[in-house]
């Protein structure tokens, strides 16, 4: 009996949490749509008192059709493949539009 009560309490908490979190997200979206870009939905994260880590992202344009590994045999070696990757760029910056 006791464990059923505990279980129901947990389940009720889950539903309450789902409702609360979803409402908060939808409200934040509405706020963002009606306000300046600076007040946009990023506030959800900030509000949670945990600074989000935003690592920069390496280039995701790996696939291309250029040749690489050039240089005659005598100049070849480890260094030839350094900095000759398919893409040596960083695409993390969110476009400022």
């Amino acid at each position: 009996m006791k464990s059923t009560t505990v279980h129901n309490l947990a389940l009720a908490a889950a539903f309450a949490g789902l409702l609360g979190g979803t409402s908060a997200r939808l409200n934040a979206q509405t706020t963002a749509q009606n306000s300046a870009p600076s007040a946009n939905a990023g506030l959800i994260l900030v509000a949670q008192n945990q600074a989000p880590a935003l690592p920069k992202h390496s280039c995701k344009g790996k696939n291309d059709c250029k040749g690489q590994g050039g240089g005659d045999a005598k100049h070849a070696g480890k260094n030839s493949c350094k900095g000759k990757g398919a893409c040596a760029t960083d695409g993390s910056k969110t476009p400022k539009v």
Binding site: C59, K60, G61, K62, N63, D64, C65, C87, T89, D90, G91, K93, P95, K96, V97
Partner: peptide
């Protein structure tokens, strides 16, 4: 269309006739 130019294209909106993309990316 290449990643290092994304910011420039989206912010400056240069007049370009067309872009080719590498599908796999």
């Amino acid at each position: 269309l290449r990643v290092p130019h994304y910011d420039h294209i989206l912010s400056q909106k240069p007049v370009v006739d067309w872009f080719e993309i590498i599908s796999e990316n």
